[in-house]
Design a protein around this nucleic acid. Structure first.
Lengths: 155, 155
DNA sequence: AGAGTTTGTAACTTTGCTTGTTGCATAAGG
DNA sequence: CCTTATGCAACAAGCAAAGTTACAAACTCT
């Protein structure tokens, strides 16, 4: 099962935008994300509704930040992309009336709820500025490695 | 994104098997899970390899437990169904060489690793016997509600 | 031995979701 | 008024999980 990379992508974009002079077009962002502009608009629409970004039409238009990086947490962005389900594993619902199934799902739900709580608490304590600072560290340490550094990607 | 219900289903089946006299056929199990016998065999194959169940061909054949419920934890079964990815959200890998993307993914990976650790630790401390005991409680409290009780299913 | 059951497995089909694509309307700027 | 952008809807493509079909292998019982 393929996972949802929207949160990661939007964080990626927002930090780039903070370092970018003026508005960033959907086309430019699409190149950053190796995708196409329509998908960018679709995804960014959620962020716009929450005021994290603005969009302008016409010449010189595009996307701009609605807040500073210090004022956005991972939790904010997670919610803005629609609070997608955190877990790829979950309860089955084949025989909703079966008490065995209910007991199983209850045990699983307890464990997942606890893990989700921990995760979201952590999300709430990390700002985009924290990530940008980490980026600056990486930049300072490995300026020559851009284009070659291992990334840990599965692909 | 639809989640993976295999863990839940296998737990469901194993507890039923413990209460069942003799071997349970794939057909019977398929009815429990509201699916078909070939899918059952496919999924149970993983459990068989790990020794949690046995299968017998021919007359009177079918599936039997390879261990007592006290000797199986949620973690055991999670692993036996192939340790499917726990999370439905994850790092994107659109520009593996981009240091911003790397910083983002690193922040996310840390948070997810912590949550996964907590989850699996909890899985390790819950046996199938614990769930069966919870089932017994539900049975004692609501014997007349079978077939009507709300289940919390999203469906 | 033979009939009837049941698992094992491979190949194919179906289904649902995500992403990509196209087309056009709308708005801003020069 | 032409160019550049976003906004949005409708449709196509790709992919993975689940369902289906078909048949071989193995076991039991009479």
């Amino acid at each position: 099962m393929r996972y949802d990379g929207r949160l990661s992508r939007m964080l990626h974009v927002l930090i780039h935008m903070a370092r970018h002079e003026g508005a960033a077009t959907s086309d430019l962002i699409a190149q950053m994300l190796n995708t196409n502009p329509v998908v960018v608009r679709r995804t960014m629409a959620g962020l716009r509704e929450q005021g994290y970004v603005h969009s302008e039409k016409g010449h010189g238009g595009g996307w701009t930040l609605g807040r500073r990086l210090e004022e956005m947490t991972l939790l904010d962005i997670y919610r803005a992309v629609g609070e997608p389900p955190v877990f790829a594993v979950g309860p089955a619902c084949d025989r909703p009336e079966c008490l065995v199934e209910q007991a199983v799902n209850s045990a699983l739900a307890d464990a997942f709820a606890e893990a989700e709580k921990l995760l979201l608490e952590r999300f709430a304590h990390v700002t985009l500025a924290d990530i940008a600072a980490d980026f600056d560290n990486r930049m300072a340490r490995h300026p020559a490695l851009v284009g070659h550094a291992g990334s840990g990607c599965a692909s």
